[in-house]
Nucleic acid binder design. Structure first.
Lengths: 218, 218, 218, 218
DNA sequence: AGCTAAACGAGACGGTACGTCGCGTCTTTAT
DNA sequence: ATAAAGACGCGACGTACCGTCTCGTTTAGCT
């Protein structure tokens, strides 16, 4: 299971996001920008070291030792670059079957916290939202490339809970994840609150205890 | 009860937030920007009509028929201006005592949805978060000026629910509001999902049904 | 008698070239770019020190300690700037009445050589020609602002020669000047030949000796 | 008798100009760019159709259906390419012995006008001058490859005039040609004046009538 | 006829300069 | 006296070409 990276489709001349594993498997030679790694990592470095307001294409190019045009050749905008830079380090692990629904849910919440509470990259998320909001089609592509895998992996764990009878039939796995991610992001970005053990535990219990509210409209 | 607006203290040269009522009451003394209303409303117009990326000081000045320096005299940054422009229309109503906890919670959720799902202004929120994130002290002041009143009014309603016995002693009102606001914002900004009646109802039931998870650590 | 400088007509919002004397006479305060002098002189410095291929707007701005936009605000193109920079030091003296036609013609030829053989600025002339050729209307304005005065002053001297009987009625003063300027420029730019005393003398004699060929078509 | 074309000496890695006849005669050895003709003609096409400012290597390569590297393989710079493109169509005919000096001189002047008044290519000449000025050695090589033959052919005709006694001993054939070419170019490029029959005739008479001024310093 | 080496097309790359836009400051003009 | 208008130094934008550099792919002369 790999990360997504940017690539220009040579046939359509349109930019597409490949899964890096696909990339590796489809070609033993590097396809796409030769310096994709260098560039994405430089973008993260700049974001971490200087903050979003200093995340300019020129700064990334300089940090990566690359010409601006190389970045523009492969990424159509700062948002696209930022999306890939974040996606590249976004956790989307499969939740192992532990035989213990509560433990699995806790793993899912922890992974979500890992992603959103990441000191540096989290700063990029609202910026990304700002940039993508006026372009719903980009937003959709971003969700698919970026959040899909993580949400699917977590949904698998939730469905295991349903099978075990720990969670009710018809659980709205999307809503559960919106509650988790939303609460975590909101506390992180707007409230600056802690995202400690206690909060994680309560988010788990919220799902274990109140399933009726989280069951999809019949 | 008025809205907060920004103002530069001429003595200390520091930026301060006035309650707009104060402003209105003292306006015969020509304190504060004469064109505050024009400017904030122009800012919202630009944001609505052209999106955040076109929300420049120059555009706001032009739309308000005002010189750039007039804006800079009173607001130290685009973020400050944006914050006031949003705060100016942010709903923070008191929740009336309906004698019915569920109905009151629903009012609270609806108000939150009103604020965050507002087609146009919501676009400004992640931008605001982006701008404020590197400045925790600004973020704090923003929270106080901006979210405080709304959260207090909702907390009053939640505590009424506790007194009525509909909600448990020790309910963590902050966490409740984080779950509500977070879920709503996340769906609005990241998922583009609907924020319909059903979701509102389930967010209410989530709080009514699973109080254990929402009680502060003992 | 002044030099031409660039100026934006505030009414028409179009760029115009003013005679600097006019400029001085029309306004005791500086009209036009506050740093016109700094900029034009920086342009000449760069041209002299590094050659035309290094004469970039960015280099001029840097050398003048000025923002690029200040240059673009007042000059619509590199050619316009170059034209003014050259015009600013282009000799267009009146030829004094010496009572000696040969001596006056020699003054005229020497002035022409001064202008075109100038080690550094001459390099700018073919560049200017290249830039203006596709825009006949610019070329016309350039001729008027730039060459007119010089040609008129020389024509005055030629007509004195006609009055004295040293040159024939109907002398084509334009053709004379085209022959002089053309020969000098061609030797300077294309042949790299010397432009010494001897050449100057022969260009004078060419006009004194062969008037028939230089009389306008009857 | 052919035209000169550019070629990179594979041994010395220096650029040399071949006479195109040499090229044709040696072409069985595959010397020189296979697509020299295509490229030079594409260069002229671009210059004619879009002007000098659009004469980029990339545009020429595209117009010629050729890779950029093929051009760079054979021409070290845009100026070299332009020089060859112009030289390729530059007239340098021998002036036939008509037994009539005036008629022969007129042929020479007409040929010069043909070359310099060519609507499209003339635009390339000042550009060429601009590019070559900072490199005197290139300028010299250009003169030799480009102007030499034409000037020699005209000089032959002038010397026939001397032998016939129509022109004086010691006539400075270089100065004559500088006057002709200079006047024509200057009127064409700087003045935009006509280059009609009348001008041609007067340039001829200028040389026939005023030989003293055109005799080399004794 | 098949092989080999060159020349070739295509175009990615690190760069430089372009001309534009908006920033936040400062100056001028006109109430 | 205050504010509009807007010039200014600055820095990033996204674009166009530069000249260099791999890449396969012709293509032509030589076994």
């Amino acid at each position: 299971m790999g990360r997504t990276v940017a690539c220009l489709d040579r046939t359509t001349k349109r930019y597409v996001s490949f899964d890096s594993m696909e990339l590796m498997f489809t070609s033993d030679k590097a396809v796409g920008p030769r310096s994709a790694t260098k560039i994405l990592s430089a973008a993260r470095d700049v974001l971490t070291a200087q903050g979003y307001s200093s995340l300019t294409i020129e700064a990334v190019a300089a940090a990566a030792g690359v010409g601006k045009s190389t970045i523009y050749r492969w990424w159509p905008s700062k948002e696209a670059l930022l999306a890939d830079a974040i996606a590249d380090v976004f956790r989307a692990d499969e939740i192992p079957d532990l035989g213990d629904t509560r433990a699995e849910l806790r793993l899912a919440v922890d992974m979500t916290i890992d992603n959103y509470a990441n000191e540096d990259l989290a700063a990029g998320l609202p910026a990304l939202a700002t940039g993508l909001l006026p372009h719903p089609e980009l937003m959709t592509r971003f969700r698919e490339a970026f959040l899909q895998r993580k949400r699917e992996n977590i949904a698998v764990a939730l469905r295991r809970g349903v099978e075990r009878g720990d969670l009710p039939e018809g659980l709205d796995t999307d809503l559960v994840q919106d509650v988790w991610a939303g609460t975590i992001l909101y506390r992180r970005l707007m409230m600056g609150s802690s995202l400690d053990d206690d909060v994680a535990d309560r988010l788990v219990r919220l799902v274990l205890d109140s399933p009726a509210a989280l069951v999809a409209r019949s």
